[in-house]
């Protein structure tokens, strides 16, 4: 049960990191290229801590790379939000900001986990996530309140991605048990704080709050978008083509 929870946490960081790493060398300016790469790097680091911890609870005794890079698609437990594509810099920023607000709240709660190792991972990661949130929130404001063009692009990205954050606050059966035991975070309790922070940011950024209240779901159960297969085809390529080798 803890094993699955660790994978779920790790997969979110892993897949978002993978998406960001696609932008390496293609950022809108050198400074943002460096920042995006840096966030990608932090997220891989966080994923590695979680995967390494997960290896200790794996019946099959797989190593971190077998966990991260060899599982079938329906065993990945990341939310749909993080697998959404890098349509343009507006989508990159909105996806990042929505996730960072969640990641910040989630890790802020996870530092109190009764599982000491998990609490330690959360404490270490939280320091990085604060920086990520500052970066993405500042860009929400700059681009929302920048030019008419940037405002429109941001609004389009928000409208496109608005259906995805809802899944972040869904509780799986395993999470409910672990939350009761004080190990996992009850993410359903984070939704109000998330919404409050996001709405304040959108308002300050002169961006409109979309009207839709429904949300897409599936990732946490292993049912992903069509994007996921392509992400994995790329990410898993060498491990699949040359199994059981040392790199």
């Amino acid at each position: 049960m803890l094993f699955k929870y660790l994978l779920q946490l790790a997969d979110n960081q892993l897949i978002l990191s993978q998406r960001l790493s696609e932008l390496c060398g293609h950022g809108p300016a050198l400074e943002q290229d460096i920042a995006i790469t840096n966030i990608s790097l932090d997220l891989i680091g966080q994923a590695r801590l979680l995967f390494q911890y997960a290896t200790k609870h794996d019946d099959q005794k797989r190593n971190e790379d077998q966990l991260a890079l060899v599982r079938p698609e329906n065993e990945y437990r990341n939310v749909l939000l993080v697998e959404q594509p890098n349509v343009d810099f507006a989508h990159v920023i909105v996806r990042q900001y929505f996730y960072d607000e969640f990641n910040f709240l989630n890790y802020s709660a996870l530092v109190n986990s009764k599982d000491e190792e998990l609490a330690a991972i959360a404490t270490k990661s939280l320091m990085e996530v604060k920086y990520h949130l500052r970066f993405s929130r500042n860009w929400m404001l700059r681009l929302g309140d920048g030019t008419a063009i940037s405002n429109q692009k941001m609004q389009d990205a928000i409208d496109d991605l608005w259906a995805y954050p809802g899944e972040l606050f869904e509780m799986t059966a395993d999470e409910q048990v672990l939350a009761k035991a004080g190990v996992a975070v009850d993410v359903s309790t984070l939704q109000e704080n998330w919404k409050e922070a996001v709405l304040a940011t959108l308002q300050e950024a002169t961006l409109a709050i979309p009207e839709g209240t429904w949300h897409q779901t599936g990732g946490k159960k292993g049912i992903h978008s069509e994007y996921m297969g392509h992400i994995l085809a790329e990410m898993q390529f060498l491990q699949r083509a040359y199994p059981n080798q040392t790199w």
Binding site: H26, D88, L143, G146, T147, S150
Partner: peptide, 12 residues
């Protein structure tokens, strides 16, 4: 692709 981003940052 980054032009609108740089313009927006300058405008902000």
């Amino acid at each position: 692709d980054g032009e609108w981003v740089r313009d927006a940052a300058a405008a902000y």
